[in-house]
C-alpha cells in the first residue's frame, strides 16, 4: 500500500516536471521577442541632458514601436555602473535624464559611454545598445551693435576647457510648431569655438517682449543632438488683435453690440408692453360696471 502511494507520487511529480520543462522550453524557442534598440545622447531645455531610447520590433511590414519595455541604463567605465532603469512609452520611446555625476565620471578627454541592456526581461531576448558622447558647453550671448542684434555662440569642451572649432551649428528662434532658422542653415565655429549671426530685426518677439534664440546641433557623432536656448529681449512686440474682446457682429451673445441690444429690446419692450396692457384691458372689460 505505502509502496503504491510512493509510486504514484513519483509518476505524478515526473509528469509535472516534464510538463513544466516542456512548456518553458516552448516559450523560449518560439515567443521570445528580440527588440531593436537605439540609443542617443540629447540635450534640450525641457529635459536637460538625457539619453533617448527607442525600442522597436520587427513587424510584417517594417517595424512597430515597442511599448512597456524595461531597460537598464549603465555607465561604462573601469567598472560598469547601473544608473537606473526606464520603461518605454506608447511610442516606444523612453527618456533617461542624466545627472551631474555621470559627467563627473567622464574620462580625461571628457568621453562618456552609456549602455542600455535588456536583462532578464520575461519574454524578451537579452540585448543592448550603447552610445559614446561628450558634453558640450554652449555659451549664448546677445549683443546689439549699431542697433543690429547679434547672437554669438561659444562652444567649449567643459572637461578640457578647449574651444570646439570647425563644428556646424544652426541658429534659430523658437516658434510654436517648428523653430525658425536665422541666417544660413549652418555656421561653422572658428578656432576660438565662436560663431555669430545677425538676428533680423523684424522677427516678432512674444507679447512679453522676449524672444527665445537657440543653437541646434543635429546628430553629432560626439556631442549628440543638442539644443541650447536663451531668452533675450529683442524684436518688435506684436499688437494683440482686440476684435475678439470687442462687441462685434461676430461676437458671442455676451458680446452683442450695444446698439443691437438697446434698440431692439426697446422696441420689443414697447410693443409687448402695449400688448400686455391690452390683454389687461380685456380683464377690465369683463369687470367694468358701465
Amino acid at each position: 500500500m505505502k509502496n503504491n502511494i510512493r509510486y504514484i507520487c513519483l509518476i505524478l511529480s515526473g509528469i509535472i516536471l516534464f510538463g513544466f520543462g516542456n512548456n518553458a522550453f516552448a516559450f523560449q524557442e518560439e515567443d521570445l521577442i528580440a527588440p531593436r534598440l537605439s540609443l542617443g545622447y540629447f540635450k534640450d531645455s525641457q529635459n536637460g541632458p538625457h539619453l533617448r531610447v527607442k525600442a522597436r520590433v520587427r513587424a510584417k511590414r517594417g517595424y512597430d514601436d515597442l511599448a512597456n519595455l524595461k531597460v537598464n541604463v549603465y555607465q561604462i567605465g573601469e567598472e560598469d555602473m547601473l544608473l537606473g532603469d526606464i520603461t518605454t512609452g506608447m511610442d516606444g520611446v523612453a527618456i533617461f535624464k542624466l545627472d551631474e555625476g555621470v559627467f563627473n565620471r567622464a574620462d580625461s578627454s571628457g568621453l562618456i559611454t552609456a549602455e542600455i541592456r535588456i536583462e532578464d526581461q520575461k519574454g524578451y531576448e537579452d540585448s543592448s545598445a550603447d552610445v559614446e558622447f561628450s558634453a558640450l558647453q554652449i555659451e549664448i550671448s546677445f549683443a546689439v551693435e549699431d542697433s543690429v542684434g547679434y547672437v554669438t555662440a561659444k562652444l567649449t569642451n567643459p572637461v578640457t576647457g578647449e574651444a570646439v572649432s570647425e563644428e556646424d551649428i544652426n541658429f534659430y528662434v523658437r516658434r510654436s510648431f517648428r523653430p525658425l532658422t536665422i541666417g544660413d542653415d549652418f555656421y561653422t565655429t572658428d578656432e576660438e569655438g565662436i560663431a555669430k549671426v545677425e538676428i533680423p530685426s523684424d522677427i516678432p518677439a512674444g507679447f512679453d517682449g522676449k524672444l527665445t534664440v537657440g543653437i541646434f546641433m543635429d546628430d553629432h557623432y560626439l556631442f549628440g543632438t543638442i539644443r541650447e536656448e536663451q531668452e533675450i529681449e529683442y524684436g518688435p512686440i506684436p499688437t494683440l488683435d482686440q476684435a475678439y474682446f470687442e462687441r462685434t457682429m461676430w461676437g458671442t451673445r455676451d458680446k452683442t453690440p450695444l446698439w443691437l441690444l438697446i434698440f431692439p429690446n426697446l422696441i420689443i419692450l414697447g410693443v409687448w408692453g402695449v400688448l400686455l396692457y391690452l390683454a389687461y384691458k380685456l380683464y377690465i372689460i369683463s369687470k367694468i360696471k358701465n
Binding site: 391690452l278 380685456l282 377690465i284 372689460i285 367694468i288 360696471k289 358701465n290
Partner: peptide
Amino acid sequence: LNWRGTPGQRKIHTNA
C-alpha cells in the same frame, strides 16, 4: 367677458 356694450367697455374696445 361680460360684454354688455356699455360706454366704458366700448371706449376700451374701440381704442384697443
